[in-house]
Every structure is written in structure tokens, then in C-alpha cells.
């Protein structure tokens, strides 16, 4: 009468475990894992020397630097302004708050190519904003500044949408306790609220950053795409592909993936550290 069962899962009366997990893993492997593994395998066939050579050419290095550097800068701006937007949306009531809340999601829903040409038109010399900046000697379209603007656009909702729910769930008692203990509003914010929000903020930052590093559609229209100046790494992959330089394209892709995974891992660890500190 002994019923032997696999130990790696708890038995359940709900049917369909085998088939749903089987389909999930198979489909995941076919669509995502095997193709991605193919990328790494391909780069392995290059050999270390050629791989290293491919990713250390000045143009590639510049492109990686531009992609990662501007993505970090844009994510930082988004962390600050995203926090403000989330704060205003959660804490203050004003006419049209619901509409503003919905607007935050536009970058999620608007196709990147559409965003790209719209931003370009907006910031061109004769554009609505570009026209205002031109007399000041600031040019955005077709410069690295344009990349920055595009990456702010696509990254903002990530920060707002990760911070917002945590801010909503923040217990009022915590702030009230801080106030009753004599803290000023400023002290309460810096010492009580901000540390509580930090893990969510870090998650939003990481998401905004990882989206920005790989971004292509909204950037290529506005960037000007000058090698060494305003050429992003994803664009360089496309250029190499069009030249049928598959090996080099693969090498850049692998370098990008490894770098962004490493950065994400670092942010993850930082977050875990912050969370464990928050709990203690």
C-alpha cells in the first residue's frame, strides 16, 4: 500500500502537472534557451583570440561604452524622476490623476520605432523642443544627448511601476511613529521612507537599465549613428550582420549579454543586501 512518488515535487490532487510542465519546458527550450545557447556556442567557435580581438576594436569598445554609459545615466535620471512621479501619483490627489497614471505606461505600449521618429522630430533643429534649444547652442537630435533622451523615455515606467506598489503598501504607522519621535519630514523621508523603498527602486533601476542597454528602435533614429560618437552596440551588431560579419556580430552580442547579466547580478546582490538589512 506504499505509494512511491518523486521527491522533487509535492503530490497534488490537481491534475496536469506532467503535461503543463512538459509543454512549458519544451517550448521554453525551443524558443528561448536553444537559440540563446546557439549564440554562445557560435561565439565559442571563434576561439578566445578572435573573440577578444572582435570586442576590443576601438569602434566596438566605443559602442559598448556608449550603450552602457548612457543607459546608466538614463536609468539614474529615471530613478530620481520616477520616484517623484510615483510619489506624486500615490500621495497627492489632483484632477486627472488617473489619466496621468495611465500616461506613465505609454513607453510600454508605444512601438519603439514610433517613439524614435517622434522624439527625433521633437528634438530636431526645427522641432518643438529642438527649436527652443537651438538658440542656446544645445543640440539633441543626432548627438549622444539624443540617445540619452530616448533611453529616458523608454525606461521611466519601469521605475514608476516598481516603486508605486511598495509606496502604496507603506504602513502609515511607520511615518507617524517617526514624526511622533520628533523626526522632521525631511528626516523621515531620508531615514525611514527611502531605505524602505530602496529595494524597489533598485529593481526599477535595474529593469530600466537592462531595457536601455539593449534598446534599438527608439535610439537609431535620433542618435545620428556616428561611429565612435553616437553609435550604440545593438546598431553595430546590425551593421556587422548586414556585412555578413556574423562572427563579429555574435561576439558583440555575447559581450553585451555577459556584461548586462553581470551588472544585473550585482544589482540583485545589492538589493538582497539592502533587503536583509531592512529586515534586521
Amino acid at each position: 500500500m506504499t505509494t512511491a512518488r518523486l521527491t522533487w515535487r509535492q503530490p497534488s490532487v490537481i491534475p496536469g502537472f506532467g503535461i503543463t510542465l512538459g509543454v512549458t519546458v519544451t517550448w521554453l527550450s525551443l524558443i528561448v534557451l536553444i537559440p540563446l545557447a546557439g549564440l554562445f556556442l557560435k561565439s565559442a567557435t571563434l576561439g578566445w583570440g578572435k573573440f577578444f580581438e572582435a570586442i576590443t576594436s576601438p569602434r566596438v569598445l566605443a559602442a559598448l561604452e556608449i550603450s552602457f554609459g548612457i543607459a546608466l545615466a538614463a536609468a539614474t535620471v529615471n530613478a530620481v524622476f520616477g520616484l517623484i512621479v510615483a510619489w506624486v501619483l500615490v500621495r497627492y490627489d489632483f484632477p486627472g490623476r488617473r489619466v496621468v497614471d495611465a500616461i506613465v505606461d505609454i513607453p510600454f505600449a508605444l512601438p519603439t520605432a514610433v517613439a524614435g521618429i517622434a522624439l527625433t522630430a521633437l528634438y530636431a533643429e526645427n522641432g518643438w523642443i529642438g527649436g527652443l534649444l537651438e538658440p542656446l547652442g544645445i543640440r539633441v537630435s543626432f548627438t549622444p544627448l539624443g540617445i540619452f533622451v530616448a533611453l529616458i523615455f523608454i525606461g521611466l515606467p519601469f521605475v514608476v511601476r516598481t516603486v508605486q506598489p511598495v509606496l502604496e503598501d507603506l504602513e502609515p504607522e511607520i511615518e507617524e511613529a517617526a514624526a511622533s519621535l520628533g523626526a522632521t519630514r525631511r528626516q523621515t523621508f531620508l531615514r525611514v521612507i527611502l531605505p524602505t523603498l530602496f529595494p524597489a527602486l533598485a529593481t526599477g533601476y535595474a529593469l530600466a537599465f537592462s531595457r536601455a542597454v539593449g534598446e534599438y528602435g527608439s535610439v537609431i533614429f535620433i542618435a545620428g549613428n556616428m561611429p565612435l560618437v553616437s553609435e550604440i552596440a545593438p546598431l553595430l551588431i546590425v551593421i556587422r550582420l548586414n556585412e555578413f560579419a556574423y562572427a563579429e556580430a555574435t561576439a558583440i552580442a555575447v559581450a553585451m549579454l555577459i556584461a548586462s547579466f553581470a551588472l544585473l547580478l550585482a544589482i540583485n546582490l545589492l538589493q538582497r543586501w539592502a533587503r536583509s538589512r531592512g529586515r534586521g
Binding site: W8, S12, F17, M256
Partner: peptide
Amino acid sequence: AITKFEFRGKSFLITLIDLPFSVSPVI
């Protein structure tokens, strides 16, 4: 599969499903 059953490696599976989000569209 993920929410109705308890099994080992579940959170890893969720991470793998999310993977395409952190890969550049070009890649």
C-alpha cells in the same frame, strides 16, 4: 504548472521565462 504545484527549481524556471525581457531585441 508554476502556480498549482510545488516543485523544486520553480523560481529558476520563472527566471528563464523572463529571460527574453533582458535580451536586446537585436540579439
